[in-house]
């Protein structure tokens, strides 16, 4: 979505994304890994997990994030080996605006 700003530059509404890998498919299970995309910038967050902004998926929902992808449970249905990394939730929320020269 774009809108006109006073300076005749287009303002683009960009999407924020949050990747949370949890220990289980429960919204309250502990987060094992995180990556966040805000204002078009990728960040892994702090090294120390205790300092991450969300310790479970529900924390993120309560902060305005919406789930757009639930974990792929088919990956867990083979008892002979472990596939992938935990249970991946991908969330989104409305991000900010960036200006694009017209």
């Amino acid at each position: 979505m774009s809108v006109k700003s006073n300076s005749d530059n287009r303002k683009l509404h960009i999407q924020d994304l949050l990747y949370l890998n949890a220990t289980a498919n429960s919204l309250t299970s502990e987060v094992l890994a995180m990556r966040i995309v805000e204002n078009g910038e990728i960040s892994d967050g702090p090294d120390n997990a205790d300092d991450w902004p969300y310790q479970c998926v529900l924390d993120a929902i309560r902060d305005g994030w919406h789930i757009i992808k639930f974990p792929e449970l088919a990956l867990t249905m083979d008892e002979s080996r472990t596939y992938g990394f935990g249970f991946e939730f991908i969330l989104t929320r409305n991000g900010g605006y960036i200006e694009e020269n017209s």
Partner: peptide, 26 residues
């Protein structure tokens, strides 16, 4: 490094979206 990850099957390029990992080893 992610301790114990040598047991976790993945495609080389399927874990690029991971960011910070709890208790990873620097």
């Amino acid at each position: 490094l992610i301790p114990g990850s040598h047991f976790m099957f993945t495609h080389r390029d399927a874990i690029n979206s991971l960011g910070s990992v709890r208790n990873s080893y620097y």
